[in-house]
Design a protein around this nucleic acid. Structure first.
Length: 498
RNA sequence: GGGCCUUUAGCUCAGUCGGUAGAGCAACGGACUUUUAAUCCGUGGGUCGUCGGUUCGAUCCCGACAGGGCCCA
């Protein structure tokens, strides 16, 4: 810690107050304090009290001091508890005496957590209050709170989320929104008899998605390990073993760029359903999203923080990826179009071609370039190129295309669903192809997971699979950036951090 | 990875055409028994992100680095 003399004034003074409390035999951090009820309960119980009433009811409450108005012989403070509920506390000379009033004024600062015991009353202005008979410091704050009335900078909110939660109502509601959505997702799965499983996050071989992994090292096993980029290959092993309907909600890690819609660690749902296919998965996905909207907002129409409304109700549009491309570029493009045709179209659109891109990648780039921004309402984009979907079954009718959809909401990808590839021989061919791409420098290519192939060779039932970003779901529901949906997004330490 | 912007008191921000800085809230001292962003009087608080360069003199101009943001790849 910094030298006591070097501390900024306000930090030094609070440390001195803590020391002063100790030296007069007080306790700045007691093991417990009186508390008979919550601020919320008092507010609920005494909703309609008229002005200037004494109820005769004595309670002990706790809260953080967020406003303090010290007058000569009658002091006022606003206490706030975790959910944001506030209650006024009053300290009068004739109730607590000169010595205690002096302690209240001099030792208690904004930001301190206190316990107040007294009568529930309303003030002469009608404010519901607790009129103290006694009070006790519950925890001394050694740092000042930021100004309540000016918003914290974006960066401070993220770096000191605990402060953000104290001062900003939206921070509190966002923090509670996420668990509400989680609960809803689990209920939707549970009502359809899906089992929640937990599969490894530390993996010997990363796979299940196209992404660069984080690498780490196990001392005990003396081997490199990867943080998972997706749970897919383990969830499929579950289905081989007869856990026919499974889901997992947990973190994945991708060693890639971070921006307003990407975080290096992010929560994801993955689910697999034996005897389902990409259509049943689309239905399930819609149910998950609509149930979550209903659980959180009471409606399929969700209200974004900036006031915009988004209707997630009803049936959702389905468009074909290649039809959308064809319409956008004015000529017929299919899964069988040659790579040269696609390159020509891409160049015409001004897309910078990466020579490493395979055919399907170019088609996807064209799609993203032309169609994505129009997809505000929830839309399933059906039929992705087969060569970029190595774990997906070929379309039952349309050549060159896989039974894969992406769900777009608000112009970003929210979920993706498939009819899963279950032929272990074709799967091996696809993964060998991936391994070749990896060897030729594609850092996102999957490895050849022999154990997974071995599991598949035992017979995997026909099934549908789906993955959905939980952070993205919250973004779709609220319109917030990803860093607002995550309590503690990764931030670089600053040089001046104490 | 490239370009542009940004970093000043505890917080949110002004400002200095180069002469070491201000406001509001917060803090400290005082007055006030019905305040609620209380009010009134008074006071203190800053390595102006870091390190270099130019200059008589740099918070300001230039460069590098670090943090943050936006756009592009």
């Amino acid at each position: 810690m910094a030298d006591e003399d070097d501390l900024p004034e306000q930090l030094r003074i609070r440390r001195e107050k803590r020391a002063a409390i100790l030296s007069r035999g007080g306790e700045p951090y007691p093991v417990s304090v009186p508390r008979t009820t919550s601020l919320l309960e008092i507010r609920n119980k005494h909703k309609e009290l008229p002005i200037d009433v004494a109820t005769g009811i004595i309670e002990s409450v706790t809260g953080r001091v967020i406003f303090k108005r010290d007058t000569g012989k009658l002091c006022f403070a606003n206490l706030r508890e975790g959910d944001g509920t506030e209650l006024q506390a009053m300290f009068s000379l004739d109730k607590i005496g000169d010595a205690q009033l002096e302690i209240w004024k001099s030792e208690i600062d904004l930001g301190d957590i206190v316990s107040v015991t007294g009568e529930v009353i309303t003030s002469k202005r009608g404010e519901l209050s607790i009129l103290a008979n006694s009070f006790m410091l519950a925890a001394k704050s050694l740092r000042p709170l930021p100004v309540e009335h000016k918003p914290l900078s974006e960066e401070s909110r993220v770096r000191m989320r605990y402060v953000d939660l104290i001062v900003r109502p939206e921070a509190r509601s966002n923090a509670r929104l996420r668990p509400a959505v989680m609960k809803s997702l689990r209920q939707t799965f549970s009502s359809r008899d899906f089992l929640e499983v937990e599969t490894p996050m530390l993996q010997v071989m990363h796979g299940g998605a196209a992404a660069r992994p984080f690498k780490t090292f196990s001392n005990a096993y003396e081997m490199d390990l990867f943080l998972r980029i997706a749970p897919e290959l383990y969830l499929k092993r579950c289905v081989v073993g007869g856990l026919e309907k499974v889901f997992e909600i947990n973190r994945n890690f991708r060693n890639e760029g971070a921006d307003s819609s990407h975080s290096p660690e992010f929560a994801m749902i993955e689910t697999y359903e034996a005897y389902g296919d990409w259509h049943t998965m689309a239905q399930l996905t819609k149910n998950l999203v609509q149930d979550a909207a209903k659980a959180v907002f009471g409606s399929h129409k969700v209200k974004h923080h900036d006031g915009r409304e988004l209707d997630l109700g009803g049936d959702w549009n389905q468009i074909s990826l290649f039809e959308a491309i064809s319409k956008a570029v004015g000529e017929k493009v299919t899964g069988e179009s040659s790579i040269d045709e696609l390159k020509k179209i891409a160049t015409k659109l001004g897309i910078k071609l990466d020579p490493k891109w395979i055919k399907g990648k170019i088609a996807e780039e064209i799609f993203e370039h032309t169609a994505i921004k129009t997809l505000t309402a929830p839309t399933f984009v059906m039929g992705f190129p087969i060569d970029t979907s190595p774990l997906v079954r070929a379309h039952r009718d349309t050549p060159g295309v896989a039974e894969k959809w992406d769900l777009y909401v608000e112009g970003f990808e929210l979920a993706t669903g498939y009819s899963e590839l279950i032929d272990p021989v074709i799967q091996r061919e696809r993964l060998v192809e991936q391994a070749k791409l990896g060897a030729s420098g594609d850092l996102e290519a999957m490895g050849l997971d022999e154990d997974f192939l071995k599991a598949m060779e035992h017979g995997m039932p026909p099934m549908g699979g789906m993955g959905m970003g939980v952070d993205r779901l919250l973004m779709a529901l609220t319109g917030l950036g990803i860093r607002e949906t995550i309590l503690f997004p990764l931030v670089k330490p600053t040089a001046g951090d104490e």
